[in-house]
Design a protein around this nucleic acid. Structure first.
Length: 595
RNA sequence: GGGGACGUAGCUCAAUUGGUUAGAGUCCCGGACUGUCGAUCCGGUGGUUGCGGGUUCGAGUCCCGUCGUCCUCGCCA
């Protein structure tokens, strides 16, 4: 080894020892006759004392982030010079040799975590190797490493088998847009990168592995968001001979264990469970943030007694009227409410109706319609009290009402301090519909086409497909979907009925999924599983609002990698090899000075 | 594809109603200093105001376009 200790382990016990350390220059404090260097590595910081005379006069010029190899003696610091903030703060290393073994130019940005403003993400990711030297960034990746380690330990102890699946696989018709990889050996044909290893893991169940796990990269070519990257990591699980409760049980024991180990927080099990219908009704979303106590109330049955034609019109059009009660919101200004209305409008709401109570009684634009009996009914339904604000969204589309109110509920939670990142509120959402209606009104899977219908509803698959519940469940944490899974279809006959229902002919089904259908013929046990989004889980445990913070080399919103510059053009010879040519439109650059 | 915010020194930011030579901190370079731990003090270098066009006597500031970053709607089985 080139070093005898790390920068985090020398203490008073090592007094008098000779040590050799290697680390980065964290700070230089030069006092002329004496100088100090904080040497930093992954494990900590150690103060080096420099005396120009003892170093033979010609001491090198030291600068931040150079890599130094220091040979010296461990000495106790003089009384009053100790630094209680460092574990190595009782000692210092008096250098007799300092060598720059990795020089470093002036830095493109300030690594100091104290003072200074925020650096733009693009710059941080372009110089991620520098960014990661900062404690706050480094610690996120150490945490993520612990998280994966704890997951594997837990699951291996539960007799899961870690198996791998291909990255070059086959494009499937459903779901997100695939990333395609051209085949050199088969011109005109393409692999697809997996959106998830769904079918492979079901085949592992048919093979009898019984309990499968994999930490696996998945790819979806869709637009990016703060919580979505084109490649992301899942913890993928599948179990044979199980029902919903078995999957839910093992996952919530694991998640409670992870949260305890990583965050030191105890969450009680079992986690709360809500049906999909209940979640949408009460929170306006299938991924509710249970840290906020606010609830939505449906007023559809009261609109006949509220003389406000926007409300009655919404219900007559097949939509809804729902209210959100904000305790204490009576004190909120018109400006704040206008901001909330603007938010609601981004989700397609025509406007935001509201009333509030203050010393003048009920005031607000809606108050002239809400009087007497109507007011009493609404106040009773929403449990409104003096000093409250009531917000109403009415629309002919239930989706608009729920999306807008979910956004308002989250925004209000943020403003009221209910979105404390240290609080962790997991829940399960169950009994999703098996299908939703696509643009043409045809049923399309809510989850994926291998999800088993609820046994009570299976006979309505053909007659009332949209009313069929699925044996699907999502794990939600602080308003983020961090996992989703289901009990799968393990009978070929039922699987073919579902394919038919979503408009896949038996030829198409055979073409796309013949390997699964084939496997299901050969003795498939009942099975089910789940996939957890590791990036999102790590993000929440780190208290962040973007998964980029816990991804080592993330992509920008346009899908670029600031570090490597990917994606990039390739040599024409490479294109020829795979039999591809690029259409001119895609590569045409406006020529400077043209026209 | 749509909406919004931002883009000024390597970095973080400022610049009054459109008005003189675009400033400060930090970094970097030089100097002073034997106990600092965000060392301090003195001096200095550093600018295509993202890019292109327009309005104007005059544009960092106003207008149009474009590029980039971030947030978001659509999209994400």
């Amino acid at each position: 080894m080139l070093r005898t200790q790390t920068c985090g382990e020398l203490t008073a016990k090592n007094e008098g020892e000779t040590t050799t350390l290697i680390g980065w220059v964290d700070a230089v404090r030069d006092h002329g006759g004496v100088g100090f260097v904080d040497l930093r590595d992954r494990y900590g910081r150690t103060q080096i004392t420099l005396n120009p005379e003892e170093l033979g006069g010609a001491a090198p010029t030291l600068r931040s982030e150079q890599v130094l190899r220091v040979i010296g003696t461990v000495e106790l610091r003089p009384e009053g010079m100790r630094n209680p903030k460092l574990t190595t703060g009782d000692i210092e290393v008096r250098a007799r040799s300092v060598e720059i073994i990795g020089d470093c130019p002036p830095l493109p940005f300030d690594l100091s975590e104290i003072g200074g403003g925020e650096i733009t993400d693009e710059l941080r990711y372009r110089y991620r190797f520098l960014d990661m030297r900062r404690d706050s960034v480094k610690n996120r990746f150490l945490m993520r490493s612990d998280l994966l380690h704890q997951m594997r330990n837990f699951l291996h102890a539960e007799r899961f088998v870690e198996l791998e699946t291909p990255v070059l696989t086959k494009s499937t018709p459903e779901g997100a847009r695939d990333f395609l990889v051209p085949s050199r050996l088969n011109h005109g044909e393409f692999y697809a990168l997996p959106q998830s290893p769904q079918i492979f893991k079901q085949i592992f169940m048919v093979a009898g592995f019984d309990r499968y796990m994999q930490v696996v990269r998945c790819f979806r070519d869709e637009d990016l968001r703060a919580d979505r990257q084109p490649e992301f990591t899942q913890l993928d699980l599948e179990l044979a001979c199980v029902e919903e409760d078995d999957v839910i049980d093992v996952v919530e024991r694991m998640v409670a264990h992870l949260i305890r180990e990583i965050s030191g927080v105890t969450v009680t099990t079992p986690f709360p469970r809500l049906s999909y219908e209940e979640a949408v009704s009460v929170y306006g979303t299938d991924a509710p943030d249970l840290r906020s106590p606010l609830r939505l109330e449906t007023l559809d049955d009261l609109v006949d007694r509220i003389p406000f034609n926007i409300f009655t019109g919404a219900v007559e059009a097949g939509g809804q009227v729902k209210a959100l009660r904000v305790p204490g919101g009576g004190a909120w200004s018109r400006k704040v409410i206008t901001e909330l209305e603007a938010l609601a409008k981004t989700y397609g709401a025509g406007g935001l109706a509201w009333v509030k109570t203050n010393a003048d009684g009920w005031v607000g634009p809606l108050s002239r319609f809400l009087e007497g009996e109507a007011l009493e009914l609404v106040a009773e339904r929403t449990s409104a009290e003096d000093g409250d604000l009531l917000l109403f969204v009415a629309d002919g589309s239930r989706g608009v009402v729920n999306n807008a109110l979910n956004a308002l509920r989250k925004e209000i939670a943020r403003r009221e301090g209910h979105a404390d990142p240290a609080k962790l509120a997991p829940c399960w959402v169950t009994e999703f519909p098996l299908f939703e209606s696509d643009d043409e009104g045809n049923p399309t899977p809510c989850h994926h086409p291998f999800t088993s219908p609820h046994p009570e509803d299976a006979d309505r698959l053909e007659s009332e497909p949209l009313a069929v519940r699925a044996r699907a469940y999502d794990l939600v944490l602080n308003g983020f979907e961090i996992g989703g899974g289901s009990i799968r279809i393990h009978q070929r006959e039922l699987q073919e009925r579902v394919f038919r229902r979503i408009g896949l002919s038996s030829e198409e089904a055979k073409e796309k999924f013949s390997f699964l259908l084939e496997a299901l013929k050969y003795g498939a046990p009942p099975h089910g599983g789940i996939a957890l989004g590791i990036d999102r889980l790590a993000m929440i445990l780190a208290g962040d609002t973007s998964i980029r913070e816990v991804i080592a080399f993330p992509k920008t919103q346009r899908g670029g990698c600031p570090l490597t510059g990917a994606p990039g053009e390739v040599a024409s010879a490479q294109l020829e090899e795979i039999g591809l040519s690029i259409s001119p439109r895609a590569t045409a650059q406006p020529e400077p000075g043209a026209d």
